[in-house]
Amino acid sequence: MAKGTFEVKVGLAEMLKGGVIMDVTTPEQAKIAEDAGAAAVMALERIPADIRKDGGISRMSDPIMIKGIQQSVTIPVMAKCRIGHFAEAQILESLEVDFIDESEVLTPADDNNHIYKNDFKVPFVCGARNLGEALRRIGEGAAMIRTKGEAGSGNIVEAVRHMRTIMNDIQWLTTLNHDQLMSAARDLQAPFALVEQVAKIKKLPVPNFSAGGIATPADASLVMQLGAEAVFVGSGIFKSEDPASRATAIVEAVTYYKDPAKLAKVSEGLKSAMKGIDMSEIPENQLMQERGW
């Protein structure tokens, strides 16, 4: 019997495709997410929009809070640790969370290294803005990639930029001859074996989800049409006026992303979305997407 292999980790990522993973801070919110049809929930103490507002150091959540959410739902429960903070990851693994997000939303603990994720039995998801960053994370053992977007912004522009960049990078690789792949690996700062694999299979070796700014059913459809295999919605649901209806609408939008008439129908009468912020309003040193190396 083999547990915690890369294959078994990627297996759970494959099962989450076509779904929505929702940030929740209480068991009550987790129930709302599950009832709406979330494929998984992300348990955290403060959603990104509040982390951004409150400032200070943002860390792994209280185990009591994570356990409360695990007991309240049957769908997979994810939790976040700080970039490079393998001790937080060890604690989350001991709590038997189903997935760990080594996340730029929390304050990084190591300004040079990410966690060596192959050491763990629990699968990890990591953010990426381009193909090189995605392949470095997969090289460390990430079983799922999510484009970073800009968490807590309610603004889809960065999520779109990152998804387009990764897809363009993959397309570019597939146009190269084998003797050009080493220089591509050098330019991407990515492991050569993974660059070879992507050039061959024309996609990432693990599922590629979208995150960071999705606030409406149309946003979900947009990133799915650009190539996302599922979406994370952080602040977009519980910072909106009617979370249950919005959560349900986004779940349906991810399934029916190619059907504008259906998208129109699920978008009807949703109360206000989260307010959101323009990128120019965020000082450069407060961009979460810049965290990670």
Partner: peptide, 12 residues
């Protein structure tokens, strides 16, 4: 989920 959470997922 009777075989347990993801850390107990396996191949055999």
């Amino acid at each position: 989920n009777a075989w347990g959470r993801q850390v107990y997922s396996f191949t055999d």
